[in-house]
Write a protein that binds this DNA or RNA. Structure first.
Lengths: 310, 310
DNA sequence: CCGGACGATACCGATGCGGTATCGCAGCCG
DNA sequence: CGGCTGCGATACCGCATCGGTATCGTCCGG
């Protein structure tokens, strides 16, 4: 590190700036609430450290030399930037400034996650929010490598260094081809779907949404007639639209409107699907805390009664 | 002036930066050639002044908090800018940085002045040179009001607060319409021009070039036949081109080539015309000194023998 | 369980800050 | 013209605070 700065301190800049602006040592001393001799000494010292005469001492005060005018400009700038640095640091300490990398995946990107992000960006406009489309394994890896601050996911996997929080319990819906016989019912049950041709997703990561849905059938000793496995909810609904069969989607996915697709709610007490937030167990950054708080405010709390249905 | 900076000093930034970069108090202490306790103390004090924890002390060294990372960035930036401020100030003290306002007027703008400016801009590339077209009175006024650092002029007028320097003695030439009988001569004398129709310039400021030229005639008890007074040398030569008569121009104006105009030199011992530089007597700025030096280097020194011919 | 490395703390001279008193100088005014 | 006034510089002093040495508490690794 080059050390041409020597022993120059902000005090020198503050004192010189005051003297230069007041065009007087005495007047500057009053403004700074110090006596005049320290000003003389500090400015002399500054000039010696710089090797440059900054002020022309005259009977009625002082005048700036050309170099003094340049240095005044620089000093003002430095002092202003130092204050900004202070502000930014304090904002960062309060989580109001920085960068938040959020992992997202699955149908929650259609409703729940955008609502959280939107609210957070409004509350913390100077935080840069970056979304990363990553599946569960990718989120876990990225969290460990500090490329991610927080991830949204559907499924709960115990890891020693990570924390899962259930932030939302969404109801389920059946996506039906228009004209399907079940569209006559306003609400459906799992039993209604027994033997129906079904499209399921996602193929990976396992276990995932698909396993929870199939679990609903097994628990009731019913059989799910899987006609197609696909990667994601969009493809699944697209196949429904083409008449392949029906599929089951979360409330968030209701925003996904395709022609020829009709949604019917499943009875809420039949099943709920969790939305989880993953984070590092040792991450206590104010930014993350702020984000969690916003998420809790925006998303309705998951009813504990149904939490057992996981 | 807001004083949120408090007692923060560059020392705090230097120490914190070193610790943050080394991720260790002890390693930073070695690099800084101080012992470890002062680092601990300065960083603690910095954190207290900021009201923000910047480092997480850990058994194997330190980690940056989010706010600490932000502040490290800001501190590095401030230190770099401070060094730049130093550089710029020292450059300004040596006349290598700043702004130079130069007043120019008359035929010297066609040769002598551009040569000086060009040389100066090469030698001092970071100095902004601004040219102002001002006549002598305008230059004097602008110099007094500090809008001008230096002015180039033809005529010497004593002023208590200004200094004139003769920087160049140029020979004179006669501009003739093509086909004029005097074009037969390779060189001319003042006597050759007696009774010839002449265009003279400038109308103002007086006294000026015109008066010196006419003085050459009076001194020899000759008569100048003035057929037209115009504002400047360009107009004068344009009229010569139209056959109005002849006019007398300095060497610099030889660059002014118009169709139908032929130049013939006047004998050097007949007359020389000075180019003067005006400046404030109390201006000892390094920039001006540097400019004067360059001007002296570029322009051939005026022969003292002819100086009396003014 | 102990040795070593880390940062924090306690304490101590020395530096250097800011304060008071005063000087030297220049412009102003009676 | 001589004292007055207001300016920045200087001399000197007390004390805050710097940096240094010695040491502590703690965690990690052998």
């Amino acid at each position: 590190m080059s050390n041409r700065l020597g022993a120059i301190e902000f005090r020198h800049l503050r004192y010189f700036t005051a003297v230069a602006e007041a065009r007087s040592f005495r007047a500057a001393a009053q403004q700074l609430h110090v006596s005049q001799p320290p000003l003389t000494r500090q400015v002399q010292q500054l000039e010696e450290l710089l090797g440059v005469v900054l002020l022309e001492r005259q009977p009625r005060g002082v005048e700036l030399t050309a170099a003094g005018a340049v240095f005044l400009d620089e000093a003002r700038n430095l002092l202003a930037l130092a204050e900004q640095a202070l502000d930014r640091t304090q904002m960062a300490a309060q989580g109001q400034l920085g960068r938040l990398d959020v992992g997202v995946f699955g149908s929650a990107v259609f409703d729940a996650i955008p609502r959280v992000i939107q609210a957070f960006r409004t509350a913390y406009p100077k935080v840069e929010v970056v979304l990363h489309n990553l599946d569960r394994a990718g989120q876990i890896k990225a969290l460990r490598e500090r490329r991610l601050t927080v991830g949204f996911n559907r499924f709960f996997v115990e890891e020693p260094d990570l924390v899962w929080d259930v932030v939302l319990a969404e109801a389920l819906n059946v996506a039906l081809p228009a004209g399907h016989r079940l569209t006559d019912h306003a609400r459906l049950t799992i039993a209604d779907l027994s033997g129906e041709a079904m499209v399921v997703y996602p193929r990976s990561p396992r276990p995932g949404f698909i396993d929870q849905v199939l679990g609903l059938f097994h628990r009731r000793h019913l059989t799910a007639q899987v006609v197609q496995e696909v990667d994601d909810v969009v493809t699944a609904v697209a196949l429904v639209s083409s008449g392949f069969g029906l599929t089951i989607v979360s409330d968030s996915a209701l925003n996904l409107r395709l022609p020829g697709v009709v949604y019917r709610p499943l009875e809420r007490n039949e099943a709920l699907i969790d939305l989880c937030m993953i984070r590092r167990i040792d991450d206590d950054s104010p930014l993350l805390r702020a984000f969690i708080e916003v998420a809790r405010e925006v998303l309705p709390p998951p009813p504990e009664a149904h939490a057992a249905a996981r």
